[in-house]
Every structure is written in C-alpha cells, then in structure tokens.
Design a protein around this nucleic acid. Structure first.
Length: 847
RNA sequence: GCGGGCGUGGCGGAAUGGUAGACGCAACGGACUUAAAAUCCGUAGGGGUGAAAGCCUCGUGCCAGUUCAAGUCUGGCCGCCCGCACCA
C-alpha cells in the first residue's frame, strides 16, 4: 500500500471543495443555524502558527456542526487598516493599499492551504471602500442618535512629527519615532459614547455564561462601577468644588481637599501663581513614564485656598494640588481622610496634616485607637464624628448622603472607571471620519448619498503630521448645508471601530445597508467566537457596545454579539543561543540526543526556555515550512493534540513527527480494505471480539461528540487514538465491526484532518464527500457497560478488585467484596464496622 | 496593592468526591530487515520484597481540616502565570 501523499491529496481535495462550492453557505435554510467565527487577522504579510491554531479550532467546530446538520456560517475577512501599512509605505515607499492587498493575497493562499471550511464568497477587507462606506454610514447614524460627540481632549502630541500619539507610542515621555519630548495638547476629538451603556455592559456580563470567567472579570474591572456620593465644597475664593467619594462616612476625618494637576481650578490658579505652575509642570514631567508612576512619591502643593467643611463652615480644610489625584476619574478632586485611606495617609504624613481616626474596630478603644502608618479600611463604629458617633459604616454613609442631599449640595451617584471611547486618529490609513467643518454651519455630516468619503489614491508620506491634513485637494470640500467652501475632517477612525461590527457584515456582505437586518437576525449572535486573550477587554467591549448601538438604531435584533467566547493559548517554542549569546533561528537548528546543533556548521547551541514565538527571539517556525514538510493535516492535528486549547502549546519537531506518523497510520487502517465488507449497510455477527470492537467504537463516538461540544480538543484527540489502537489490535474481529470502526474513525477525524479523511473515505469506497457525511451516531446499547470492575478498599486503601454485573444487588456486591483474597488478608480477621457500597464504582470496608 | 488562574511521571497532560497517571511525546526491550528507516509487539511514578505472578509501602507544591473515601471540598502557607493599578 502506498504511503499517504499529503501534498497531492490536500491540493486535490481543496480543489474539489472549491469547485463543488461545498462550504458556500445559504442565508435561507431549514436547518438550525450555527455561526462559528475566529477573530479575523491583520494582513501583516504571512500567517503565523498562532493563526493556524486559532483557525484550526474554529474549523473543527465548523465542520463538526455541519456534520451534525447545522447550517454553518464560517467566514473570513481582513482587519486591514492600521499602522504597519503606513510604516511599510514610509520605509519602503510602497502604497499602503497595494502593500495590504498583496499581503491579503498571500495570506488567503496560506489559509486555503490549511483546508479551512470557509465560505470565501463572503470575504472582505475593512479597507475596502465597500466596507468603510457602511462604517461611515454607521458613524453618521450614531452621531444623529447622540452616540457620537466631539470634545476637547488631552492628547499626546509629538511636536516633531506633528501628530498625536497613542499612549503605547510614548516611551519614557518621548515619541517612539522622533524621540522628541511629548507635549500634552488639547485637541477637539471624536468620541463614541460608550459610557451610555456602562451599566448595561456590566450587568449583561452575568448572562454571558459561555464566556470565560476571566474575561468577564476583566471587563467588570475595566468598567469599574462604584457607588458613592458627589458633593460640593464652598471655597474661600468664592468658587465651588465638586468631589466624589465612596466613603462619605469618613467626612469628619477629613484633613485636606486635593485636586488633580489637570483640574481646571489648578490651571486657573497657575495663571497667577508661578509656583503652582511649576508644580503642575513637574507633575506632568513625571506623570508620563509608567515606571515613574509606580514609585512616584506623593507630592502636593498648598494653594492657600480653603474649603469649608460641609457640616461646619467654620472648619477650614486646605486645598492642595496633588499628583496622585487623577483628572480622568470622578470629578478630579477628592477630600482626604488619612486615617482610612492609604494614599491620603502617606500624603498627610509627608505634609504633616492631621490624622483623625473616625472608624474604630469593635475591639479597639476609640480614645486610644491609632492608625500608625497603615490606614484602617475595615469595618467598625464611627467615632470623633459628632452626630455619626456609634453608627456602623453603612449607616453613617447613608446618614451623610441623606443630609447632604437634603441640603442640596450632594447627590448619591454611580461612578465608572470606563471612559468614553476616543476614536480620532491622525493617521492616513484608516476609515475617514465623514464630517465636514464649515466656517458658517460648524460641523456637518457628509450626506449618505455622498458616501463613501474615499481615501486619496496616493498618500504622500513626505510631510509632517497627517498626510490627509496636508493633502489640500483631498481636504477641500463643499459644505453640504450651505454650499460654501469647507474642509473635511482629516482624522480617521480608530481601527478598533472596524472590528466592532464586521461579524454583522459577514451575515450579508453585499447588503447596501451596513447590516442586512434579516440576515443578521438569522445569524446573530455568533454562537462561538474564538480568539486571543489579548482582546479580552478592548475589542470585545467595543464590539458589545457597537452591537448595542446598532440594536438601538434598529439595525440588528440582538444586543450581545457573541453568545460563546473561547480564548486560546499562545504557541511557544524553545529558544537557542550561540556561543556569543546571540539568538539563533529555530529553523536553523537540528536536535540530536536532546542537544541542539546548527544545521549548516553542526556547532552546538544552548537551549533556552520555551517562549512565545517572536521575531526578536528567533524562535518562530513558519507554518508554510511545516505544511511543506508534513502537510496541513499534520499541523492541524498537532495544534489540537495534548495541550488543552486555552493553554499555551509548545511546538516541537518530535511532536510533529508523531502527528505525521499518526496520519500515515490512519491511512493504512482505512486503505487496507482487504477482507472488509463493501461500503453500505452492515450486518453484524454477535461474536465476542466483534462486540468488543463495536463497544470501543460507539464509546469513542459518544465521548468524542461530548468533547467537541465542550471544545476539549485534546481529549477528543485521545479518543481517536484509543479507537485507532483498538482497531489495530483487533485483526480477528468480524469484517463488519472492523468496517464500522474504521468508518467511525474516519468520520471522527474529519473535522480535524479533513483532507486525510476525504482520501480515506474514498478508499473505503464511498462516492460522496466526508465533508458532507453526517456525524456518526452511537448506539447506547453498545456504550453501556454490562460488566463493571469494582475496586474494594479497606479503610480507604485499595486491596482488591473484581468484576460484577452492572447494577448488581448491593448485598451481593458486599458479600463478594468480603470474599476477596486481598480483603481477607487486609482485614486480619477483624470484623468490619461498616461497608459502603457505591453502585458500579467502589466498595469501602471500614474496620 | 486589588482581582483572576494555576501547581499531577523525563515532558504535554487525563481523572461526575470513588482503583491517580487515560491518550500522546521522549525512552527502553523485542520482532521484521544484510542493515537502516518505516512498521508491529511489549516495558515503564519512587522505594521495598519475590524466580515469577504478585504483594507491601510512599506518592498530585507545603501544613491542617471535613469525609467511609480528597488531585478534586474548606482554611492557612509557598511558588509561578495573567489582568488592572495612586480609581478616591
């Protein structure tokens, strides 16, 4: 029998699937629907092994669901706007559009080589005008609905490159490209009003029971809901100051009021107070570097202004500017209660402010209780707090809130850590914001019939700042309202916007509205979404927000886009270094006797720990190398074997060899058809070896079906091995049982190794495609065990085991257990005190 | 600091509170072969005992606890990983 030729077989079946349109999905069907989606890739150039793992998992599910009789949507597209294309354009002088589409062509070919069951007729890239046109429509509709607004915001401004930088592009306070010190600037920026849904996004997390707990917790923390009180201080300069607190109960422990260096009041003070201005400057200088924030000491500046205590106007609190108060949270101002807040305590000790404990633990004496250097944040009774004395913390909170609300200077509020989503990007390779700025009419949206606002054909990167802003031809527009000359908004949307609704577009990518409601209502929500944990917060939160917004506008019927979420682990590989300590490319290394050598020179290299594949550590293995060596089915099988899908997997050559050997083994089992009955209905004889094989077969089907339902791919793989081992060891079993077992093996392998399965299916004499064959059913009569092995323990230690009929009478089981030789020996003549019989499991004898 | 997760052979990992180590990788022994590869069969947690089958004993990071029974449940430590982080 000829060896299995993966290269030939894979090319052949991929051609067949394409030609027959096997995976083209109709939007109308009698079958139940299943939408399987993996996070679509950025077209960076070539696919990497992480993509292979991601898309293999999704493909297994998609093929499994198809076989189970679902109408399966499994599309693919490209998250195609973004910075790498601009960098390539700047560095290599290429057109970002051409660079991107060339990458897409390469990567599409690579994905097709993997044999993915994808409906390629639905493919799109987010940089297609046909896609971003609809995104511009969405933006316009969100704007009309009040979900988009424009506001001044602090941005990181690179004065050399004349551009806004994302936080990640600021390194030690300097621009990543120019190296120039970054300035803070206020610029008018566009925002999506995600905070409008803060509470809903938070509460709905409880309903996402097919999401990892970890992701839900991360989102919950990110939204950061906290209940508290907002109230107003009267200041000695005649102004008022709002603060937010979650601890109104500690108000009589207040010893200062602090505002953020970015607070409007601070800026105002700085105008006339040079020292304050210098202090604020100093805060900004330290504030930008992340390492500095960690170790930053509390710093404060006394403005000289006093605040009246809300319950006693004669009690004056100093108003400080403090570096640890964040403008982005609450009101950007706090009152400090050092005894019960660690930061306030550190600050108070440094500036010699009073520290008055007002909450005292029940076992302490209020007169002598002292917090020392550690703030007390536990429960207790109020003290030193006038009318609050003796109350619990909760009662005191309620009392303070009630009084301040009554006085009209306070209000119970809910505060969120979540900020509105700033989406303006001063970048030329993104979706243009469809807005026009008119001197007369202000900001006007581009009318629908004038969309899309197309990017210019050529983008000139030899300018400072955003090339779109420098492109006067492109920038010049006519005001849709008054017809006078006006200018376009030259910002583009954050690319996270592109990926916030693509899953809805896939349901009908030809729709002339952003989303085809009928198609979306049929397909959404996505039944299983699969991707990396790195998107646990932003992408998933933005997509949830977009879906809610689209739902509000009547574009889709659901509010939650992803009913099931799975986050897969990364792909790792050993690292290697040469004698000079330099990284050595893993693809240049051969392993021998547990040691590593350079392929060309045979020099030994040091083996380092297994780490996430990365270019810098040179431990990347290109999927195309693996596919060229072993074929797609081998790499797919590897990605599913052994390691649970949510954990990091280590690629090893030895493991790949093992997978390749298994591919051959399955082929041998299925292609040596001598002695097998022909394809078709089977007649079984009831001999023992035949029944045994049938039992293994049916148990494998049952177990594997359950494992795939729960995405336990590694266990599903183990089931297949068990079945293959049983077939190999059962030469003498009847022909029909053997055929049944082999056919089951092929059908079970099909979602994981689809090309191999097609070849085997054909070798077994079938006409149709295994991709169109139904999932095998198991016979419960054959998965049931009539005979069970029972272990017998004496005082919890295993002493014997014996076989007995399933559901045997417990009395009889007890009697048999006590007769076992090992049991008698362990009892040493003693009489059992108690015998516990757990049916079909175990017997425990207590003496 | 806060939150979440994890800790089982040489390695990846199995195990509804019920015989710990399924399945795979690597290893070792054997068969086939002139030889190798491939393939097939077999062995395998540590220690002890036995000619052998076997039997005894220890064993899931550490220490307690609950239970007839704990890798699994509870409490406390230790270690590692991830997320957020001066969030008032």
């Amino acid at each position: 029998m000829a060896r299995y030729n993966a290269k030939e077989s894979e090319r052949y079946w991929q051609g067949e699937w394409t030609q027959r349109g096997t995976f083209v999905t109709p939007n109308v069907s009698d079958k139940p629907k299943s939408y399987i989606l993996e996070m679509f890739p950025y077209p960076s150039g070539r696919i990497h092994v992480g993509h292979v793992r991601n898309y293999t998992m999704g493909d297994v599910l998609a093929r499994f669901r198809r076989a189970q009789g679902f109408n399966v949507l499994h599309p693919m597209g490209w998250d195609a706007f973004g910075l790498p294309a601009e960098n390539a354009a700047r560095d290599k002088g290429v057109n970002p559009r051409e660079w991107t589409y060339a990458n897409i062509a390469t990567m599409r070919g690579q994905l097709q080589q993997m044999g993915l069951a994808i409906d390629w007729t639905r493919e799109f890239a987010t940089c297609d005008p046909e896609y971003y046109k609809h995104q511009q429509k969405l933006f316009t509709e969100f704007y009309k609905a009040g979900l988009v607004y424009r506001q001044e915001a602090d941005v990181n401004w690179d004065p050399v490159d004349q551009t806004v930088l994302a936080n990640e592009q600021v390194i030690d306070g300097k621009g990543w490209r120019s190296g120039a010190p970054v300035e803070r600037r206020k610029l008018a920026q566009w925002f999506f009003k995600i905070t409008a849904y803060a509470d809903d996004l938070l509460q709905a997390l409880d309903g996402l029971d097919r999401w990892p707990e970890k992701v839900r917790v991360m989102q919950k923390n990110w939204i950061g809901r906290s209940e508290g009180l907002r109230f107003t201080f009267d200041l000695s300069n005649g102004e008022k100051l709002d603060v937010f607190t979650t601890r109104p109960d500690t108000l009589f422990g207040a010893s200062f009021v602090a505002i953020s260096p970015d607070h409007p009041l601070a800026s105002e003070i700085a105008k006339t107070d040079a020292k304050a201005a210098a202090f604020i400057e100093e805060c900004h200088r330290i504030g930008t570097s992340e390492a500095a924030i960690e170790t930053a000491e509390k710093m404060g500046y006394d403005t000289g202004i006093k605040a009246d205590h809300p319950f006693d106007a004669s009690w004056k609190l100093p108003v400080m500017i403090a570096n640890f108060v964040l403008m982005g949270y609450g009101t950007g101002a706090i009152f400090g209660c050092p005894a019960h807040d660690q930061r306030d305590l550190d600050f108070a000790r440094k500036y010699k402010l009073t520290v008055t404990p007002v909450v005292v633990p029940s076992d302490a004496d209020p007169k002598t209780f002292d917090v020392g250097t550690e703030a007390y944040t536990g429960p207790g009774k109020l003290a030193n707090s006038r009318f609050l004395d003796g109350l619990t913390v909760d009662a005191a909170k309620a009392e303070v809130a009630a009084r301040l609300e009554k006085d009209g200077i306070g209000e119970r509020t809910v505060n969120y850590r979540l900020r509105d989503w700033l989406v303006s990007r001063q970048r030329p390779w993104g979706c243009p914001i469809p807005m026009i700025h008119c001197a007369q009419c202000g900001v006007v949206s581009v009318p629908k019939d004038q969309l899309p606002v197309l990017l210019p054909e050529k983008i000139n990167f030899d300018v400072k700042g955003n090339p779109l802003d420098a492109d006067l031809d492109w920038k010049t527009a006519v005001c849709p309202a008054c017809g006078e000359a006006a200018v376009r908004d030259t910002d583009t949307l954050d690319t996270f916007a592109d990926s916030s609704w693509y899953f809805a577009r896939f349901t009908n990518p030809a729709s002339d509205t952003p989303v085809d409601k009928k198609a979306a209502d049929y397909w959404l929500p996505v039944d299983q979404y699969i991707g990396g944990i790195e998107h646990a917060i932003l992408h998933l939160l933005y997509a949830r927000y977009f879906t809610r917004a689209m739902n509000k506008l009547g574009l889709v019927g659901v509010a939650e886009p992803f009913a099931g979420l799975f986050t897969q682990g990364m792909v790792c590989h050993e690292t290697y270094r040469n004698a000079e300590g330099e990284w050595v490319s893993a693809e240049d290394v051969v392993k021998r006797d547990g040691k590593a050598f350079l392929r060309d020179t045979d020099l030994e290299v040091a083996i380092g720990p297994s780490e996430k594949m990365s270019k810098s550590k040179k431990n990347v293995i290109a999927p195309e190398t693996i596919i060229a060596d072993y074929g797609a089915d081998t790499i797919r099988w590897f990605m599913l074997s052994d390691t649970p899908p949510e954990r990091d997997i280590e690629w090893t050559d030895a493991g790949a060899e093992g997978c390749w050997r298994f591919v051959q083994r399955v082929w041998r089992l299925a292609s040596e058809t001598e002695g097998l009955p022909p394809a078709g209905p089977l007649t079984f004889i009831g001999t023992e070896p035949e029944t045994e094989l049938r039992q293994v077969t049916h148990r494998a089907i049952a177990a594997m079906t359950d494992d795939l339902e729960h995405l336990r791919f590694n266990r599903a793989v183990a089931q297949i091995y068990t079945l293959a081992n049983a077939i190999g060891g059962a030469e003498k079993a009847g022909g029909a049982a053997r055929r049944e077992a082999i056919e089951a093996l092929v059908l079970l392998c099909a979602p994981m190794m689809p090309h191999l399965a097609e070849s085997c299916w054909q070798a077994l004499g079938h006409d149709g495609l295994v991709a169109e064959a139904p999932w095998p059913k198991y016979d419960p009569a054959l998965t049931r065990r009539d005979q069970v092995m029972l272990a017998v323990q004496v005082n919890g230690k295993r002493r014997a085991e014996f076989g007995v009929a399933k559901d045997a009478d417990p009395k009889m089981v007890e009697k048999l257990a006590l007769e076992q030789e090992g049991v008698i020996r362990a009892l040493e003549g003693k009489t059992p005190k108690k015998v516990i019989v757990v049916p079909n499991r175990i017997v425990n004898i207590v003496v």
